[in-house]
Amino acid sequence: MAEKIRVAPFWGCMIPVKYPQMELSVRKTMAPLGVELVDLDGFSCCPDPIYFKARDKVQWLTIAARNLCIAEQAGLDVITMCSGCTSTLQEARFLLAEDENLKALVNQKLKKIGKEYKGTARVKHIVVMMRDDLGIERVKSSVVRPLTGVKVGIHYGCHLLKPSQIMHIDDADYPSLLETLVRAIGATPLTHTEKLLCCGKGCMDEDMPLQMTHEIFHSMESVGADVMGLICPTCFNSFDMGQILIARKMNREFNMPVIYFCQLLGLAQGFDPEEVGLHLHRIKIDQVMETIAASETVEIVVR
């Protein structure tokens, strides 16, 4: 058995409150990979990199630094499940390393609650941990039911990759991280024109966000994707609920299931759809399960 890894999960807000099925899929799929999740007390919102940061960047940094202090004190690295949390915590680390005065200002505030930010805890999105700390081979070896024949339209979202100067995860223009992981679980990753387009959630406009999600679905549909695979709950909200809105406002139905990567991994590890919370999604995945079942039958016949 490969070495066990202990990390502190930073669940954020969207996942535990609104989409607990994603948390469920993470908790289920990490055990077979030899990852021990050590839940720490006291984390707050990261805080969010769009609105809270728009009001006061120093307050935003201070709350982010407070969260990082908790992991530092426990001597653990943080894994994030949401691109927004990844962005906030990673950018906070970057800014506090870049600017000594800013770090002193933040620490002056943290002192009032008996904390000091040092910068010793690292932050990684769970998919990055899988690639860099576990290795693709370990992910592959946890698969008991490869998702053969399932065509996954990949949506990276923005904050996992950009800015690469801070995130240090992949080439922001030609990323390969999610393609590699999707292949590791036996499915087929599809590239498409709008693979890197923003989901639009952070834009305060009536129409633009929906136009953007529409473009992404259109692009995925035209290459024949069965499902959309993604790694961020905010993007998920744009696409799962977004499809209902697109149908209502733009009179266009895509009916494409939107699946968080750890849920796909869970299916490949042999969990039932309900065990990774897929029954809670608005767009149902029956067709995908038929594809998986069909490929299993074929394999048995071949053997």
Binding site: S87, K162, P163, C198, G202, M204, M208
Partner: peptide, 24 residues
């Protein structure tokens, strides 16, 4: 307020302006 906060400009800017951060 119509900025999508996608950080593409931060990625692309040859001058390290970090336009999205200026907007914020």
């Amino acid at each position: 307020w119509k900025c999508t906060n996608c950080y593409s400009c931060y990625e692309r800017c040859p001058q390290d302006v970090r336009p999205v951060e200026v907007i914020i």
